[in-house]
């Protein structure tokens, strides 16, 4: 088992995330830090908690303080951190295991009805309000889609599993994190060139060189993993789409390499602009020919790749 210092649990309202956190904490002997616990720790450290008027800047300052406090806790022993944007605070941190718990809307509504002893209509209002608050916080915290499965190690749907079963699955997932993977299995996760390099067929040699550079710096990547529809005809058929060259899951960032002539670059720029308009939460960076030449020159690589 790789050393997991912190399990962050993000969850939909009434998706059994809290119950799973409590049980997992007992089974793994991890200290569970929820919102109240965190407030207490912040208070002890003479730091302010977030108020209702949260914005990205405030969140970043708060997140830095929270990370410092939690790192001190981790030194004493592993922790489970429930909610509060933990997946963002410990993003790209190799000590962290990020878990997202979801459930069906019907079950979540049912749980609200039972918990608050309310009829379906009132319960649906309560659920909508709780969801809205959570969405608002996480949108400010992440600045992106918090339900994007690519930012988590594991996404669990409790519409299909009990709390007990969920905890077993999570333990199994943590135990198998990064071990028992054959090179072939590893390749399926991230098709790094290190593991054979035959699976990915790059369109252009510059993409292959770029992939090698990412491998060198141990940055996980996926090649053209997603296609974004950009234009539809009157019948709803996709008539134009765009597949950025790379996706870096640890940074939730798409990268498009373009070493083409100016005329083609204009066409690509138009596509990127359209993508940004249609999918404002998607982060994309275009690397132009000049940027790429600089990179190769820096590494003293032949510039004709």
């Amino acid at each position: 088992m790789e050393k997991v210092g912190i399990i962050t649990i993000s969850r939909e309202t009434e998706s059994l995330g809290d119950e799973i956190a409590t049980q997992l904490s007992k089974q793994l002997n991890y200290i569970c830090i929820d919102r109240d616990q965190l407030t207490l720790l912040l208070h002890e450290a003479h730091q302010d908690d977030l108020d209702e008027n949260i914005d990205r800047q405030k969140f970043l300052i708060w997140a830095k303080n929270v990370k410092e406090i939690l790192l001190k806790q981790i030194k004493r022993g592993p922790i489970i951190f429930l909610g509060r944007g933990g997946q963002t605070i410990f993003q790209n941190d190799s000590r962290a295991f990020h878990l997202l718990i979801v459930s069906s809307p019907e079950l979540r509504l049912q749980r609200i009805m039972e918990k608050y002893r309310q009829d379906e209509v009132t319960a649906s209002h309560i659920l909508a309000e709780l969801d809205r608050k959570r969405e608002k916080f996480l949108l400010e915290a992440l600045g992106a889609d918090w339900k994007n499965p690519l930012i988590y190690h594991l996404v669990l749907n409790t519409a299909y599993y009990t709390v007990n079963q969920s905890c077993q699955i999570i333990q199994e997932a943590i135990n198998n994190l990064g071990v028992h993977r054959t090179p072939k299995e590893q390749q399926l996760l991230f098709p790094s060139l290190d593991f054979g390099g035959k699976r990915v067929v790059f369109v252009h040699p510059s993409e292959e060189e770029f992939a090698r550079i990412l491998d060198f710096y141990r940055i996980k990547w996926l090649y053209e993993p997603r296609t974004f529809p950009l234009e539809w005809d009157s019948e709803g058929n996709v008539v134009e789409a765009f597949s950025p060259d790379f996706y870096l899951p640890d940074f939730n960032l798409f990268i498009e390499l373009t070493t083409q002539k100016q005329k083609l670059v204009r066409k690509k720029n138009r596509k990127v602009k359209r993508l940004k308009d249609l999918y404002p939460n998607i982060k994309i960076k275009v690397i132009y020919s000049r940027d790429y030449t600089h990179l190769l020159r820096k590494f003293e690589v032949e510039e004709d790749v």
Partner: peptide, 10 residues
Amino acid sequence: SNYKTGFKKV
């Protein structure tokens, strides 16, 4: 170590 073509990891 610096990146060079053919070198696998930093």
